[in-house]
Design a protein around this nucleic acid. Structure first.
Lengths: 361, 361
DNA sequence: ATTGCTTGCCCAATCGTTTTGTCAGCTCAG
DNA sequence: CTGAGCTGACAAAACGATTGGGCAAGCAAT
C-alpha cells in the first residue's frame, strides 16, 4: 500500500540539495534567495516524485493544524445541519483547512469526550452548533480555544455567535400576508418556549400592528410543532366560517403541512380560501406540498459561513476578543403559491398599502 | 489563549523523571517495568497539570493519524447523508478516531482537490459515499489508501462497498401489499435508469410472481421521482374506477406524497380505498403525511457502520485485500397506516396466504 | 592582496511524541 | 569476592517538516 512515502528528504536527495532548500522553494519563503536553476530542479523533482507535504509534520512545527472542528448536538441527524456544514466547509476550504464533524447528542459527557478528541488533534478552532436556536453555555473545555456558536447564543460576551433573526422572519411572514391584502390573521406558534417562538411572534405582531391591524384580528394559538399540531390548531381556527382568518402563519413547515390537511378537509382551497405562510423552507415539504408553500427560510448556510469566517479571524489574530461580535441573520422569504389575495373584499376598513404580490407562480 | 501547552516534557520535569518514563507509564507499554512509586507520581503530575497528548506528534511518530475522511458528492446537502455520517462516526469513535467530512459536489476537480487535502493530513482511510445508489469508479488518488464505498458499487474487485438491497426492498414492499390481501398492484417507478429503479422493480415483480399474481394485475408506470411525478402517475392509475389498483408501491416517499394528493382529489381514502407503500422513510414526509406512510427504509446508518468497520479492518491489517467484501443491506419496512386490506373481496381467486397485517396503528 | 558585500545554500535546532538500546545499581548464588 | 541476572530508569534517534544563523564562493572596490 501507500508508496506515497515520498518526503522532502527524498526530493532533496533527488535534486541534489538540502532539505532546507527544498523547503524554501516549495514555500516561496520571502527573505530567501534561490538560484532559478536550483529552484527549477527542485520543482521538477518534487513533481516527478509526486511529493505531497505531510501536514502532520508541518502542523507540529508551525503549531497550526489547518483543521477546525464542527461539533453539534444533532449535527448529523437533522436535515438543516447539512447547510451549516456546507457553509462552514466552504469557508474552511478557502482557508486551506478541513473540518472534523462530530455529533455529540445531548449528553454532556459524550460532548466533553468528543471535544477532547478534537483538542488532542490540535484543531485551530471550534464551531459549536445547536440544532434549534437556543441559549447555551460554553463547554468548559472550549474556554481556551477560538470558538464560535451557531444557532445558539451565549451569555458570555467574549464568545461570538450567529443566530437566525427570528423577529425579522416573523415580520416578513406578516408582511407577505398583509401586503397580499389579508386583514384577518392567525399565527400558529410552537408551544415550546424557545427563542424561535418568542421572536417570530414578536415580529409578526409588530408588523401587524404597524399595518394598523386590530387586536382581535390577530389570533395566536399554540400547538406541538408537527403536522398533527398544525392540523389541530387549524381546525380550531378554521372550523367557524364566520370568524375565520384568511391568512395563517405557521411556526414551521411541518405544521403548515397539517394546516393544508385541515383546509382540505373543510373544503377550503389554498390559497383561494386561505393563505398560508410557513417557516424553515424545509426540503421536500415546502416544495413538495401542493400548492407550493410560501415560507421563510432559515439562514443555515449563511450562519455557517459567518461563524467560520469569524472563527478564522479569531484564529489568525491569535486571541479571542473581550467583546466578540454576534449577529442575527435574516432569512429570505421563499415565494411559492400558498398566498393569494383574500377571496372577496373581506376587509374594507383600515389603511391600505399597495399590494405587492410576488412570485405566486 | 491556550495555556494548554503542557507537554510530556513538563510532566517529566514535574515528576522528576525522564520523558521516556512518562511515555511508558502513560501508554502502559507492555515490556517495560516501572516502579509503582514513580508510576503514581507521573500519573499524579499528569493529572495535576492537565496533560493531554498532542496527537499530531503521536501520529507523526506512529504513522497513524486516527483520522478518517468521509467524502461524498452531496454528503452535506441531502437529508440522508446525516445517517451515513452518524454511522461512520459511531464506528470511528469506537476506534479512537474522528472523521473529516467533505462535500465535493459533482466536479471531479474539486473532488480531487479535497481528497488531496485529506491525504496530506495522513488520514488512515477514506469512506467514499454517493448520495444515490450508483456505480462509480474509484478516484485515482484513492488507489493507495484504504477506501470503502458507501451507496456505490465499483467494478474494481479490490474495493469494498456497501449498497442498499434494492430488490429486497421491492420484495418487502410487495409483500406488505400482498399479505394485506391486495391482488391488483401498481408500481410507480422512477424514470431514471438507476440501480434503485431496476432493483426495486425486479424485487416487486418477483414477489408478485411468487404470490401467483397475473401479469395484467401488476402495472408499472414511470414518472419523475417527485411529488408532481407521483401525482400524475397516480391520476393515470386511479382515474378509471373500473381498472383501479388497490395497492400502490411508490419509488419513493415524495412520489407517495403526490399519490396521496391524487387520491384525495378523487375522493379516495387512504388506506380504505387505496393502500400505499413508499420508499426511503424520509423524515417529516413518511411520518408527516396523513395517514402515516408505510414505507421501506434505506439502511443509511447501517451502511455507514458496515463501511467504517470494513475500513478500520483494512487499516489495521495494513493492506487492501485482492478481493474485497461487498454487501447489500436490506432496509426495514416501517409500518404506519397507509396499508389496509382492500375494500371488499376485490380479489377472489388465487392462492391465499394468511394475512399478516402488522402495525396499522 | 586584502576587505567587504552579495549570493546561494546548508547545519542544526525545534515541534511533541515513541521506541530502541544501554546502563547503573542491586541481589544473590557460587 | 566475583559475576550473573534483574530492575528501573534514561539517552538518543527517529517521524517530516520549518527556520534562524552561518558560511563559502564570487566579485568589486581599495
Amino acid at each position: 500500500m501507500a508508496q506515497d512515502k515520498v518526503t522532502i528528504k527524498q526530493v532533496a536527495a533527488a535534486a541534489g540539495v538540502s532539505i532546507t532548500t527544498v523547503s524554501h522553494v516549495l514555500n516561496h519563503v520571502p527573505g530567501k534567495r534561490i538560484h532559478p536553476h536550483t529552484r527549477e530542479r527542485v520543482l521538477a523533482e518534487a513533481a516527478r516524485l509526486g511529493y505531497t507535504p505531510n501536514m502532520l509534520a508541518q502542523s507540529l512545527r508551525t503549531q497550526r493544524s489547518h483543521t477546525i472542528g464542527l461539533v453539534g448536538d444533532e449535527i448529523a441527524t437533522t436535515p438543516f445541519a447539512g447547510k451549516i456544514i456546507l457553509g462552514a466547509q466552504d469557508v474552511a476550504t478557502s482557508h486551506d483547512s478541513v473540518v472534523f464533524v462530530v455529533n455529540t447528542g445531548y449528553e454532556r459527557e459524550t460532548e466533553d469526550r468528543e471535544i477532547e478528541a478534537l483538542l488532542r488533534r490540535q484543531v485551530d478552532g471550534i464551531l459549536y452548533a445547536a440544532m434549534y436556536h437556543r441559549p447555551v453555555e460554553l463547554p468548559a473545555k472550549l474556554a481556551n480555544i477560538p470558538t464560535v456558536l451557531i444557532n445558539a447564543s451565549c451569555a458570555d460576551r467574549s464568545v461570538a455567535w450567529a443566530v437566525p433573526d427570528e423577529a425579522a422572519g416573523g415580520e416578513d411572514a406578516a408582511e407577505v400576508l398583509l401586503s397580499a391584502g389579508h386583514r384577518r390573521l392567525a399565527f400558529i406558534n410552537d408551544v415550546d418556549e424557545i427563542p424561535a417562538a418568542f421572536g417570530r411572534e414578536e415580529g409578526f405582531r409588530r408588523r401587524a400592528a404597524a399595518w394598523g391591524l386590530a387586536q382581535e384580528d390577530l389570533r395566536v394559538v399554540t400547538a406541538e410543532a408537527d403536522p398533527a399540531g398544525g392540523y389541530e390548531a387549524a381546525r380550531l381556527l378554521l372550523d367557524d366560517a364566520a370568524d375565520r382568518p384568511s391568512g395563517i402563519f405557521c411556526f414551521n413547515d411541518r405544521m403548515a403541512m397539517g394546516v393544508y390537511r385541515a383546509a382540505a378537509e373543510l373544503d377550503l382551497h389554498v390559497p383561494r380560501d386561505v393563505s398560508i405562510v410557513g417557516f424553515d423552507n424545509q426540503d421536500f415539504i415546502a416544495d413538495g406540498l401542493h400548492p407550493g408553500l410560501t415560507t421563510v427560510e432559515l439562514p443555515h448556510y449563511e450562519m455557517g459561513v459567518w461563524a467560520a469566517k469569524e472563527l478564522f479571524h479569531q484564529i489568525s489574530s491569535e486571541q479571542r476578543p473581550a467583546l466578540a461580535p454576534t449577529t442575527s441573520i435574516r432569512g429570505p422569504v421563499i415565494h411559492r403559491a400558498s398566498v393569494a389575495p383574500p377571496a372577496q373584499g373581506s376587509d374594507l376598513g383600515g389603511r391600505h398599502q399597495p399590494v405587492d404580490r410576488r412570485g405566486n407562480a
